[in-house]
Design a protein around this nucleic acid. Structure first.
Lengths: 356, 356
DNA sequence: TTGAAAGCGCTACCAG
DNA sequence: CTGGTAGCGCTTTCAA
């Protein structure tokens, strides 16, 4: 492994000059800079990571903690890991994986031994145990996701509540008066932080707009075809003319297939909007309007906050909620014929039932 | 961050004694050892990672390179990453993620700057570009998967060929004379290293045993329900009375559903064996015999080889193929009635058709 | 069984 | 604009 003194010798300068040329922390004459860069290239020099850490107290490594529970949706998770890694590399950072059985052990360790400059927290649970730990350590920590108690933390996420509200508003504007939400498997409402946010915003906005709102999940522990089908039919029975989907790609496909089988046309008979999907809903059998969850958006922001945490303008603690965007794919249509007013009672209007 | 001299002071010994007590590289009297451990605990000492790297030239970090192509099957991939991380932590190693757009860049970098002690290569392609690089760098590199040209490399993998052969043999022993292989999406046969190994061993063993063998994939770029269904019916049309499955969990479910819909009973009418699955085939609607791919097996071995590479008994280059194991779940039955010998010609016997 | 001290390769301060 | 050099915190000889 070639070291800095060899580069210095090859370029005919001192090692401090090489160091400064590489870090850009002080002006170097174009001539010497060129000679140094030349030497670096021909010798294939790359500064020793350990020495750098020790001397500079910057490791150029971020830890990424991910509990990897059994019910984690692998594709989405992978998209976040990838997006984080790419964003980090853009700023010359590497990612150290912390998949500890006991998430706290890994975080404490890297916080204590100075292996990483900051910690990024993925797959945040409502009552995440990493929250208390983050407050205790001095290593800057950024949450990608919002725990119940986010006091004093720096958190980044899609504004799921606004996304759900946006979906409901669009459908309401199109004249729909009865909506159905096809949600995640039951377990996600306890273990993850965002499904509940979607659900309550869905219900609250529907209530505000005076719409009927029904809710159903796509399984117990994981997405199941039969549970999804059952939910679709129950939501239809409840009178839904529009669906909000907050579920896996497979569940999207099942919902669309189920509607097609019943001869229901999208958007002719039923309108559909997807919320928080991180795959391309335009590529489904029936393209579906989407208010997507964009991993790159959250992860880029998280990385830039992590980097800022190391400098002077440390970011204020608080939530950074990314505003939702609406992608049209033609799956929402206005309701033209007046809705047949059945013998609806007041209590029906605000009904919201869990279907499992 | 508390440092070694503080521990030494607290324990009333020299810093070298602390260092040796922690590394166990020389005998320490029980009394001093106790005092040191005590001090370490109360002070919460953890040796500075950078200093350790610099002085000891051991980083306690392994790089894990994973190209993360679009067609990567996320759940399987995640299982391997997790298994690697867990195995590494057991030996006090952390995992640095290398998801570079350009895999080679990351590997060269960590090899040049000494950030990692060894590199683990995941998701190996037949003509993987990381192969040439691995030969060029001095950082020990372990492949989890087998590239076409594995000369001089240390590779670990399930013996997919033996697994496929075992499946065919079991079915042949049960009296089946016509087998169908439900494989991966087409693209995997070019981009991945193991699907071709399964397919060719399947065909070769069938030929050796004098069986008919037909082959079909589960999609073009990714697993699709319709493609899988079509393959099932084409294999049945080809006369298959037994299926070997080498596909995703979803595809397994589709195959079983398709058989059930046709009133075909498993194992009464059709026998089924799964090869290379890393999920629980016993938990499917119809439990299926399995010759599983166990991520832990490959990853544990890979990690132990990586560690050995750092010591004196460096492992010889070469393939370490893990022998397959057979898990019964009752999905294979003997064929009792003699097979009706249709007007089979010689060319039919060895027919093998790709169904897409 | 224990200590003292020489580096590991780099960053960043102090000089010039 | 450029050099010299003192550490960074640890591991590991060399001595006792």
């Amino acid at each position: 492994m070639v070291k800095i003194n060899e580069v210095a010798a090859a370029a005919g300068v001192s090692i401090s000059t090489v160091s400064y040329a590489l870090s850009g922390k002080r002006p170097i004459s174009p001539a010497t800079r060129r000679r140094i860069e030349e030497a670096v290239r021909t010798l294939g020099y790359s500064p020793n990571a350990g020495a750098r850490m020790l001397a500079g107290s910057r490791t150029q490594i971020f830890a990424l903690t991910e509990p990897l529970r059994r019910d984690t949706h692998a594709p989405t998770h992978m998209a976040f890991v990838l997006a984080t890694a790419v964003a980090a590399r853009r700023s010359d950072y590497d990612i150290l994986l912390l998949t500890d059985e006991d998430a706290k052990a890994g975080m404490s360790r890297v916080a204590a031994n100075g292996l990483v400059d900051a910690i990024l927290v993925l797959d945040v649970a409502p009552d995440d145990e990493r929250v208390v730990l983050a407050r205790a350590i001095s290593t800057p920590t950024i949450f990608i996701g919002v725990p119940d108690d986010s006091d004093g933390l720096v958190c980044v996420d899609l504004d799921f509540a606004a996304a759900a509200a946006l979906a409901v508003d669009r459908l309401a504007d199109a004249g729909h008066t009865s909506l159905g939400l096809v949600g995640q498997p039951d377990v996600s409402y306890a273990k993850s932080n965002f499904p509940p946010r979607v659900r309550s915003a869905f219900e609250a906005t529907a209530e505000r707009r005076g719409l009927q709102a029904a809710f159903g999940t796509t399984g117990t522990k994981r997405t199941s075809r039969t549970a999804t089908r059952r939910t679709v039919s129950q939501l239809l029975d409840a009178g839904a003319t529009a669906f909000v989907l907050h579920c896996t790609e497979e569940a999207h496909a099942v919902v669309l297939a189920e509607l097609a089988e019943r001869g229901l046309n999208v958007p002719g008979d039923v309108s559909v909007v997807s919320v928080g999907a991180s795959f391309d809903t335009g590529a489904l059998a029936t393209p579906v309007d989407s208010i997507p969850l964009v991993p790159e958006a959250s992860c880029d922001l998280a990385v830039s906050l992590a980097i800022r945490s190391l400098g002077d303008d440390r970011p204020e603690p608080g939530l950074r909620l990314i505003p939702p965007t609406y992608e049209s794919h033609g799956s929402v249509a206005s309701v033209h014929r007046a809705p047949e007013p059945g013998p609806a009672t007041d209590s029906d209007i605000h009904r919201e039932e869990a279907v499992h």
